[in-house]
Design a protein around this nucleic acid. Structure first.
Length: 198
DNA sequence: GTAGGGATGCCCT
DNA sequence: GGGCATCCCTACA
């Protein structure tokens, strides 16, 4: 298994959001390795997208979003949580993909410990704040290049074309809610919201 | 099972 | 000082 080619994180955010589904997110710390498969993403566009942090220009908080594709944009939200994004646009563009949920594959004991032992394994990583807790992701990793340790994307070569992807409205935003920029692997049990509710 | 609201702290206006 | 790409707990059905 190799690191994900940088190419896949470069381009229009909609396309990258779709392409990242099924690939792996890995995180190494001295406590061990944690790995999951990406099952839910959201695209945040630079233009005509009021919900995107970059839509109001560059600030200290969002400046990595305007940086190089393939870097991590991580921000702090609601006093308690972090959200993890993959920057996708050329320098100066301000586009990114929010990773909203992964299917836990390795290091489940470590995730359980970090998440205070939820009853169900899907509650380890079925939300942007939850997966950042399970993966020990915080602002010290903001700007990190995602093709190297300790936080990196890996290729899943067994993704087949039958994997059914659906586009739905994004979650948790109050503007631009009509755009279908949330992408999910249909049928996954590890989504942040039940598919039947879509 | 679903709905509603409080906690929390950093960044931006 | 307001708002926020969330989570969790409580109440009620």
């Amino acid at each position: 298994m190799r690191y994900l080619r940088k190419k896949i994180t470069t381009g229009k955010a909609e396309n990258v959001a779709r392409s990242l589904l099924g690939h792996y997110l890995c995180r190494k710390t001295e406590d061990g390795l944690v790995k999951g498969m990406i099952v839910e993403t959201e695209a945040y566009l630079s233009k005509n997208d009021q919900a995107c942090h970059a839509s109001r220009g560059k600030t200290r908080r969002n400046e990595t979003m305007f940086g190089e594709a393939g870097k991590a944009y991580i921000y702090f939200i609601y006093g308690n949580y972090y959200c993890f994004n993959v920057v996708t646009g050329p320098i100066g563009q301000g586009e990114a993909v929010l990773v909203r949920a992964v299917e836990p594959l390795e290091g489940l004991d470590l995730m359980r410990e970090r998440r205070s032992y939820p009853e169900l394994d899907r509650d380890l990583t079925n939300g942007p704040g939850k997966l950042c807790q399970a993966f020990a992701i915080d602002r010290t990793l903001d700007g990190h290049e995602l093709w190297q340790e300790p936080l990196y994307l890996k290729e899943n070569s067994s993704i087949n074309e039958k994997t059914e992807v659906k586009a739905t409205p994004r979650i948790g935003i109050s503007v631009a809610t009509s755009k279908k920029l949330r992408y999910i692997i249909s049928g996954s049990n590890y989504l942040s919201r039940r598919e039947s509710l879509e």
